[in-house]
Design a protein around this nucleic acid. Structure first.
Lengths: 191, 191
DNA sequence: TCGATTACCTGTAGAGCGGTAGGTTTCGTA
DNA sequence: TACGAAACCTACCGCTCTACAGGTAATCGA
């Protein structure tokens, strides 16, 4: 038996790790983090569970890699965001249910005690709210309807995005996520 | 050894079941449903895991009981809801983090495949959206800002409530959940 | 007072989990 | 071509989980 015959030169370490992270994304989407087993992830990339542990020494280390990938995924510089780009982002998300399912499941789990993603989401929300406040200010100035400030509106914007995702994941036929999000933006557009 | 000496006549079956459901609520809040073990719930009410199974023959049966309790908890007849009562509800929720943590964790898990609470949440959202549309119509009539209808606004209202809960659970210091919710309602109040 | 039902218990099966130990093959490099 | 590191494997440990089987003590209605 020989391992490297057919796959020889390709499959450098980095590639393999990326494959694994991608598989982990999928498995977490299907079963959540607690429900995801290393063996299930490993099988999806043609490894044994112990083979996977060669790349990520613990389950938590794998989760960290998953979260890091996400960070770099939506790392658009603040200054480049605009409200209509947000609408496009939601539209784009609506075409990639697997990924948003992964992070919706993780977010839900993360509110439980000692969850390894808890700090990540907490800090992420702080950043995202600040970022969204900036976007709102750039678009509408300091004055939003009803005397709201961008800082007070940002949590609402984020809440709408997250909340719609759950409704949409559970029942995509009944919920027009991008449409609803545009409705919300329109609400902010009224001076 | 005798079991019924000290606790004799009290602790009828129904009471015991209610105790167990309450304990399950707590454990699910702390660890999620998948992470919650029957043994942990049992211990909290002074039973063995097998003793608990006498009342609920499977783990799923216990979850069903938890969800049923919730249903009857917020079973206010549609006609009696009003928008200012919603604001009060959110304020009330902000004083009971354990319960909203339970259902936020369950909602997150429920988007995963084959989760036993998935149907429950899907159907619940259908009902709640319809109910909220009714509330909005009663309060604002058919015309909301920007030509929105109550039916199109209801998903947003629900999304804001859910989404704010996650932000608040993760970082209660930074997020004024009731205040933010009132801000959102004010947005709808503009004609 | 008896007999069924209820309310638990102990014991255990059976599966899955993350992780360790320690091997062997392959590959890159000198 | 020799050697160390990388890439995987098998074997296994200890734990936890749900659930079943079958027991015993208390309770309650006839």
């Amino acid at each position: 038996m020989s391992y490297g015959d057919a796959m020889n030169a390709r499959a450098k370490s980095g590639e393999r790790r990326a494959e694994i992270v991608r598989a982990a994304l999928e498995v977490i989407a299907e079963r959540g983090y607690r429900g995801a087993s290393l063996a299930a992830v490993a099988e999806r990339v043609g490894l044994t569970q112990q083979g996977l542990l060669h790349y990520f020494p613990t389950k938590d280390a794998l989760l960290v890699a998953v979260l890091e990938e996400r960070d770099q995924w939506d790392a658009v510089p603040d200054s480049r965001w605009r409200v209509d780009l947000l609408a496009s982002l939601v539209e784009y998300n609506a075409m990639r249910p697997a990924i948003i399912q992964t992070f919706s499941a993780l977010l839900g789990e993360s509110v439980t005690e000692g969850h390894p993603a808890r700090d990540y989401f907490t800090e992420r929300y702080v950043r995202v709210r600040a970022s969204m406040a900036g976007v709102l200010r750039a678009e509408y100035g300091d004055r939003l309807p009803n005397g709201l400030t961008p800082e007070r509106t940002a949590p609402l914007l984020v809440a709408v995005m997250d909340g719609l995702q759950y409704q949409w994941l559970l029942d995509p036929e009944s919920v027009d996520m991008p449409g609803a999000f545009r409705d919300f933006l329109a609400l902010l557009g009224e001076a």
